[in-house]
Amino acid sequence: MADDYKGPVPVPTPETQDFWDGAKRGELRLQRCDEDDCDDVIFPARSFCPCCGSRSVSNFTASGRGKLYSYVINHRPPPGFGPEPHAIAIVELDEGPRMMTNIIDCEQTPEALVLDMPVEVAFTPITDEISLPKFRPAGG
Protein backbone atom coordinates (compact mmCIF):
# COMPACT_ATOMS: atom_id res chain seq x y z
CA MET A 1 0.00 0.00 0.00
CA ALA A 2 2.67 2.48 1.03
CA ASP A 3 4.58 1.90 -2.18
CA ASP A 4 1.49 2.68 -4.24
CA TYR A 5 0.65 6.03 -2.71
CA LYS A 6 1.53 9.01 -4.90
CA GLY A 7 -0.50 11.75 -3.20
CA PRO A 8 0.42 14.52 -0.75
CA VAL A 9 1.98 13.31 2.50
CA PRO A 10 1.04 15.11 5.73
CA VAL A 11 3.89 16.64 7.72
CA PRO A 12 3.00 16.64 11.44
CA THR A 13 3.58 19.71 13.58
CA PRO A 14 4.30 19.53 17.33
CA GLU A 15 0.59 20.01 18.03
CA THR A 16 -0.58 17.27 15.64
CA GLN A 17 2.21 14.76 16.33
CA ASP A 18 0.07 12.84 18.84
CA PHE A 19 -2.66 12.41 16.20
CA TRP A 20 -0.25 10.96 13.65
CA ASP A 21 1.55 8.81 16.24
CA GLY A 22 -1.87 7.42 17.16
CA ALA A 23 -2.79 6.82 13.53
CA LYS A 24 0.39 4.80 13.07
CA ARG A 25 -0.69 2.62 16.02
CA GLY A 26 -4.21 2.32 14.65
CA GLU A 27 -5.82 4.77 17.07
CA LEU A 28 -7.88 7.85 16.25
CA ARG A 29 -6.73 10.57 18.62
CA LEU A 30 -8.79 13.65 19.53
CA GLN A 31 -8.55 16.26 22.26
CA ARG A 32 -10.91 17.38 24.97
CA CYS A 33 -10.94 20.63 26.93
CA ASP A 34 -10.17 20.01 30.60
CA GLU A 35 -12.41 22.80 31.88
CA ASP A 36 -15.47 21.46 33.72
CA ASP A 37 -17.80 23.99 32.14
CA CYS A 38 -16.54 23.45 28.59
CA ASP A 39 -15.65 19.83 27.76
CA ASP A 40 -15.36 20.74 24.06
CA VAL A 41 -13.95 18.02 21.79
CA ILE A 42 -11.23 19.52 19.58
CA PHE A 43 -10.09 18.58 16.06
CA PRO A 44 -7.67 19.28 14.42
CA ALA A 45 -5.33 19.27 17.38
CA ARG A 46 -4.04 22.44 18.99
CA SER A 47 -2.71 23.18 22.45
CA PHE A 48 -5.70 25.18 23.64
CA CYS A 49 -9.47 25.13 23.45
CA PRO A 50 -10.93 27.36 20.69
CA CYS A 51 -14.27 27.27 22.52
CA CYS A 52 -13.23 28.81 25.86
CA GLY A 53 -9.56 29.72 25.31
CA SER A 54 -8.23 27.40 28.04
CA ARG A 55 -4.71 26.10 27.55
CA SER A 56 -5.56 22.91 29.42
CA VAL A 57 -6.55 20.20 26.95
CA SER A 58 -5.99 16.43 26.95
CA ASN A 59 -5.48 13.93 24.17
CA PHE A 60 -7.65 10.83 24.14
CA THR A 61 -8.36 7.87 21.89
CA ALA A 62 -11.71 8.23 20.17
CA SER A 63 -14.13 5.41 19.45
CA GLY A 64 -13.33 5.46 15.74
CA ARG A 65 -17.03 5.29 15.02
CA GLY A 66 -19.14 7.82 13.19
CA LYS A 67 -21.59 8.33 10.37
CA LEU A 68 -21.33 9.43 6.75
CA TYR A 69 -22.23 13.14 6.85
CA SER A 70 -21.75 14.12 3.19
CA TYR A 71 -19.57 13.39 0.17
CA VAL A 72 -18.85 13.96 -3.49
CA ILE A 73 -17.71 11.33 -5.98
CA ASN A 74 -14.71 12.80 -7.75
CA HIS A 75 -14.86 11.84 -11.43
CA ARG A 76 -11.60 13.60 -12.24
CA PRO A 77 -9.20 12.03 -9.75
CA PRO A 78 -5.78 13.66 -9.41
CA PRO A 79 -2.64 11.75 -10.41
CA GLY A 80 -2.16 8.76 -8.16
CA PHE A 81 -5.85 8.46 -7.23
CA GLY A 82 -7.38 7.27 -10.50
CA PRO A 83 -8.60 6.36 -12.89
CA GLU A 84 -11.83 5.21 -11.23
CA PRO A 85 -14.07 7.82 -9.56
CA HIS A 86 -13.73 7.87 -5.79
CA ALA A 87 -15.65 9.42 -2.94
CA ILE A 88 -14.27 12.31 -0.91
CA ALA A 89 -16.27 12.08 2.26
CA ILE A 90 -17.03 13.94 5.45
CA VAL A 91 -17.53 11.69 8.47
CA GLU A 92 -19.11 12.95 11.66
CA LEU A 93 -17.48 11.20 14.59
CA ASP A 94 -19.55 9.97 17.52
CA GLU A 95 -17.54 12.42 19.66
CA GLY A 96 -18.74 15.37 17.55
CA PRO A 97 -15.99 16.63 15.22
CA ARG A 98 -16.15 16.05 11.48
CA MET A 99 -13.22 15.09 9.30
CA MET A 100 -12.49 14.65 5.62
CA THR A 101 -11.71 11.10 4.56
CA ASN A 102 -12.29 8.37 1.99
CA ILE A 103 -14.75 5.51 2.34
CA ILE A 104 -13.11 2.14 1.67
CA ASP A 105 -14.44 -1.39 1.27
CA CYS A 106 -17.53 0.08 -0.36
CA GLU A 107 -18.73 0.67 -3.92
CA GLN A 108 -18.09 4.30 -4.84
CA THR A 109 -21.67 4.93 -5.97
CA PRO A 110 -24.59 7.01 -4.68
CA GLU A 111 -26.50 3.77 -4.11
CA ALA A 112 -23.83 2.29 -1.85
CA LEU A 113 -22.86 5.54 -0.13
CA VAL A 114 -25.91 6.32 1.96
CA LEU A 115 -25.85 9.40 4.16
CA ASP A 116 -25.88 8.69 7.89
CA MET A 117 -24.75 5.09 7.45
CA PRO A 118 -22.51 4.03 10.35
CA VAL A 119 -18.82 3.85 9.57
CA GLU A 120 -15.69 2.87 11.46
CA VAL A 121 -12.11 4.02 11.12
CA ALA A 122 -9.55 1.92 9.22
CA PHE A 123 -5.99 3.17 8.86
CA THR A 124 -4.14 3.09 5.55
CA PRO A 125 -0.34 3.34 5.79
CA ILE A 126 1.08 5.62 3.07
CA THR A 127 4.65 5.92 4.39
CA ASP A 128 6.55 4.31 7.24
CA GLU A 129 5.46 7.16 9.50
CA ILE A 130 2.07 8.25 8.21
CA SER A 131 -1.16 6.26 8.19
CA LEU A 132 -4.30 7.97 6.90
CA PRO A 133 -7.54 7.53 8.81
CA LYS A 134 -10.12 6.23 6.36
CA PHE A 135 -13.53 4.79 7.11
CA ARG A 136 -15.49 1.72 6.04
CA PRO A 137 -19.09 0.68 6.56
CA ALA A 138 -19.41 -0.44 10.18
CA GLY A 139 -19.42 -4.19 10.66
CA GLY A 140 -18.48 -4.63 6.99
Binding site: G7, P8, V9, P10, V11, P12, T13, T16, W20, P44, N74, P77, P78, F81, H86, I88, M99, M100, T101, N102, I126, L132
Partner: peptide
Protein backbone atom coordinates in the same frame (compact mmCIF):
# COMPACT_ATOMS: atom_id res chain seq x y z
CA UNK B 1 2.15 19.59 3.79
CA UNK B 2 2.48 20.88 7.37
CA UNK B 3 -0.60 23.12 7.22
CA UNK B 4 -3.78 21.76 8.74
CA UNK B 5 -5.34 21.45 5.30
CA UNK B 6 -2.20 19.69 4.11
CA UNK B 7 -2.48 17.16 6.92
CA UNK B 8 -6.21 16.65 7.12
CA UNK B 9 -7.63 17.29 3.63
CA UNK B 10 -4.99 17.08 0.91
CA UNK B 11 -4.32 13.30 1.14
CA UNK B 12 -7.85 12.27 0.18
CA UNK B 13 -7.66 12.65 -3.60
Amino acid sequence: PASLAGQYEAPYG
